[in-house]
Design a protein around this nucleic acid. Structure first.
Lengths: 140, 140
DNA sequence: ATGGATGCAAAAGTTTTGCAAAGAA
DNA sequence: TTCTTTGCAAAACTTTTGCATCCAT
């Protein structure tokens, strides 16, 4: 998956935000590292290019991108937050707790569950990026 | 929901663990506070009875009970961990992000999803206590 | 030039841990 | 008595924040 920086940059500038080299680097890192990435991994990655780039900046940028729906954040059971480029359509994950294998799951697959939640409880699930942890075929 | 301390105590002793007043108090607190409880809330609760009881002890006891499958832990989006007495049968939650309303959801309701995960991906979901966040009927 | 973003460092918030003392079995 | 658990305090870990400076627009 990749991101179109031109388009994103235009949108951010239009909203009064600024497109800085730091933000671009950080978004590139999220993209290139792929899958679920920790803030720590992003920090280490961008620091190889610009050693002066600060951890606080990484967190602020990641939170900013989350607010702007450019990336999504997921809390893992271990307490850390992982980030991922937000695709055009929401999706979810099956993540193997043993080997880390990561299967992307379409929103459609959860629809029956969400539909039942709405019908039986009047409850609207508002999570657009759920990770289900378990074991993959190889690790069972 | 309640817990049978006699039974739990016997099992723990049988496994070589010790049943201390602190552990009993902490388990009572999880039970009486009901629903999803933070370690902080447990700490405050037990401290009213035994002011010298330490925070570290609370965390150690809660982790211990999790290991023993006597309570379950859930990471919230805000980063805190909430605990709950583990029922005899696993269940899940719909939690309203606005008012905190908490609907218990049977394992059965998630079974079709888990079944598809197994069939289509060979993936075995191993979460026995998932919280889905969203909005309840009243808060929509 | 203007005000949003960064760097730096300190702090906040939650959870863990080393160690000596206490206490359950 | 033995070995687990507690209390205490310090630390670990992730994330946030105040403020002066910098820089994208």
């Amino acid at each position: 998956m990749s991101h179109n920086m031109e388009e994103i940059a235009a949108r951010l500038r239009g909203a009064g935000y600024r497109v800085t080299p730091q933000r671009q680097l950080i978004l590139d890192a999220v993209c290139e590292l792929g899958g679920h990435v920790t803030a720590e991994a992003v920090y280490e990655s961008v620091q190889e290019i610009v050693p002066s780039l600060n951890q606080g900046t990484v967190y602020r940028a990641l939170n900013f991108f989350c607010d702007e729906r450019i990336v999504t954040a997921t809390r893992q059971p271990d307490g850390r937050t992982v980030y991922e480029l937000a695709g055009q359509n929401p999706h979810h994950h099956f993540v193997c707790q043993v080997c880390g294998a990561d299967y992307e799951v379409s929103q459609q697959m959860l629809r029956p569950l969400f539909e039942r939640a709405r019908q039986e409880y009047g409850f609207a699930v508002e999570m657009d990026h759920i990770s289900f942890f378990g074991r993959c075929r190889e690790c069972r």
